[in-house]
Design a protein around this nucleic acid. Structure first.
Length: 395
DNA sequence: AACTTATTCAACCGCGGAGAC
DNA sequence: TGTCTCCGCGGTTGAATAAGT
């Protein structure tokens, strides 16, 4: 029944690692890669628990670890992300290339937290999220997207890459489906569908909620299901994905915020959007954009400026985008830099096996006041999760 | 120089989610 | 379906070092 025990607890060394132990571990991982931490110590000739080996490798021995004092930029990133994510050190670490969660955690506990305590009186400073889980933070977790490990944090071995891919595949698909099921269960799929007529600019949404939006509003009522009589209103999963992704970065505010966004989209659709030459339309960039920006947890982070709800390439437009580490040139597994500001997606369709999804391009903009453009085509929630994961992580 | 206190950071511990059986 | 293990995460500890007296 079940698996065999992780490691027998007899004769296992504890405490500080010796140089010899380090060398054994490095040599083994260089030859065989990471994975199967349970059996690794035995194979590597180490009298350590696999857990201890893993920790030693990820926090200390990996070749791609940056040591030394954190820069002011990194410090600001930590402060900002801690305010949004709380003590999710591994998630925060993913935004700081070559830094470990342990290092960030230590830095926070030994230095940054004290700074906060010192500046407690300064109301303009961001406030750290306490580690004790308030009911609010617990409920927010319901919609929290785990930011999984990126290539820039993993040793570059085929084995580990395959391992990671298979794991993240199931988890992100699971996650997205979970969110989708929540929306479905709440009847909000119909609300999403109601965005479809926006493209043609002929929607007639009925019973749209006109209430205020945003997390601070607790008077948001459920948007009523619009009158969808035509089967042509079928929503593509690409659209669904974009709608979900639009809401996910605002997950800290919970499902109510998602509902608010959708209801605002519906409200906007009533007004017809802004027609463009190719037959698509901006979905009320003013209303929706300001709505989404209001929900953004980032004071000066990416804000959504507009949505192009084109049938072939639904698009979210962002401004104030900073290029995240996972889009760096280091990650040539998935990204191909065409220029410093323009990135094309590569091998996207292949990753799903079915070739259903492709993110045709991502434009990271041209300047500091840049816009970023995501183009999803024929997305299938079940098959392109690695790309979705990156996309959501970026958000 | 000796002692005390503060700080840093590697490592341990326990928990929970996900998957294996 | 239930039990068990693996893995990853966040909280905490404690040894080593630095700074202060």
């Amino acid at each position: 029944m079940g698996r065999s025990p992780c490691c027998s607890h007899e004769e296992l060394r504890k405490g500080a690692w010796t140089v010899q132990e380090d060398q054994k571990l490095i040599a083994y991982i260089q030859k065989h890669g990471t994975g199967s931490w349970r059996t690794l110590p035995q194979k590597a000739g180490l009298q350590r628990c696999g857990k201890s080996c893993r920790l030693r490798w990820f926090n200390y021995l990996r070749p791609d670890i940056k040591r030394g004092k954190l820069s002011q930029e990194e410090e600001q990133t930590i402060i900002k992300l801690q305010a949004v994510l709380g003590n999710r050190w591994s998630s925060i670490a993913k935004h700081l290339p070559k830094r470990t969660d342990n290092e960030i955690k230590n830095y926070w506990n030994s230095y940054l937290r004290k700074q906060f305590e010192k500046n407690a009186g300064d109301s303009s400073s961001p406030k750290p999220i306490s580690s004790d889980s308030s009911p609010e933070s617990k409920s927010n977790d319901m919609c929290m997207v785990p930011l999984e490990k990126t290539d820039c944090h993993e040793p570059n071995t085929n084995q580990s890459h395959q391992h990671k891919l298979s794991k993240s595949t199931s988890s992100s698909t699971h996650l997205l489906n979970k969110v989708a099921s929540k929306i479905l269960a709440s009847g909000y799929l119909e609300a999403i569908k109601s965005c479809q007529p926006v493209v043609a600019g002929n929607s007639k949404s009925e019973g749209v909620v006109k209430s205020g939006i945003g997390p601070q509003k607790d008077n948001i009522r459920d948007p009523l299901v619009p009158n969808l009589t035509s089967p042509s209103h079928s929503v593509t999963s690409a659209k669904l994905l974009n709608k979900m992704a639009t809401s996910l970065p605002h997950k800290v505010y919970g499902l109510e915020a998602v509902k608010a966004v959708f209801s605002k989209l519906m409200e906007s659709s009533e007004k017809g959007g802004i027609a463009t030459s190719d037959g698509s339309s901006f979905v009320g960039s003013d209303q929706v954009g300001s709505c989404l920006n209001a929900l953004s947890p980032f004071e000066d982070g990416p804000h959504i400026s507009k949505i192009i709800d084109s049938p072939s390439s639904p698009t979210l437009m962002f401004n104030q985008v900073t290029t995240p580490s996972c889009f760096s040139e280091d990650n040539e597994d998935n990204w191909q830099c065409v220029s410093s500001n323009y990135v094309s997606f590569r091998n996207c369709a292949a990753s799903g096996g079915g070739g259903d999804c492709s993110v045709s391009e991502i434009n990271l903009g041209e300047s500091s006041s840049s816009t970023s453009c995501f183009l999803f085509e024929n997305a299938d929630l079940g098959t392109c999760d690695d790309e979705i994961r990156k996309y959501i992580q970026y958000l």
